[in-house]
């Protein structure tokens, strides 16, 4: 994965598969620490599965025995001087939290978070998504529930709507500031 945004897309897919009805993606940069948190209210994991979820040979798939999403994200966090944790409770949901030192030479760029978000929003079905972004002096929040209300029956996954949302996200977030790039 060349961008942290790709990891976000990958991990959030798990939330959709766990039948979440709400996924929250937080991207917060403060001082030299970048925090990415993905919270869902999906089916969660029992403590036995949770204990081996960071193992690449753990997966929910039946066709193959390999699951690389979580281990890859953990590896990147640790390579970048950060931390990684998964908290989960069966029936309640899951929280995946990763941190990165912003100035660490091995930290991949955040990348195109707007592309990631519309790739998710285009296939949410009955799930909702909240995106919280706080970095430098900007703050941005997107809630698909509010977008749906404005749409008044027009599907969220219409290409023209997705493109509008992608432009809106790009215009409202700041990922570069005084020579620091997320």
């Amino acid at each position: 994965m060349r961008e942290l945004s790709l990891n976000i897309l990958d991990i959030a897919e798990n939330s959709l598969k766990a039948n979440a009805t709400l996924i929250t993606i937080d991207v917060l940069a403060k001082d030299n620490l970048l925090t990415i948190k993905i919270t869902d209210n999906g089916s969660g994991m029992d403590s036995e599965f949770l204990s081996r979820v960071e193992d690449p040979f753990t997966t929910t798939r039946s066709t193959r025995k390999v699951g690389m999403g979580i281990p890859l994200m953990k590896m990147i966090s640790e390579m970048s001087g950060g931390t990684f944790s998964v908290q989960s409770e069966k029936g309640k949901g899951t929280v995946v939290t990763s941190t990165y030192l912003i100035d660490h030479v091995d930290r991949p760029p955040l990348g195109d978070i707007a592309q990631t978000l519309i790739s998710l929003i285009g296939n949410l079905n009955d799930c909702d998504l909240i995106f919280n972004f706080e970095a430098f002096d900007t703050q941005f929040r997107l809630n698909t529930q509010e977008v749906k209300e404005e749409l008044d029956g027009i599907p969220l996954d219409e290409p023209q709507i997705l493109i509008f949302l992608r432009d809106m996200i790009n215009e409202n977030i700041k990922t570069n500031f005084r020579g620091v790039s997320l």
């Binding site: 749409l151 509008f164 432009d167």
Partner: peptide, 14 residues
């Protein structure tokens, strides 16, 4: 800067 309020215009067009 675009905001959610701008969706109204797209909605009417669509």
């Amino acid at each position: 800067m675009k905001s959610i309020a701008d969706i109204k215009a797209i909605r009417e067009r669509m």
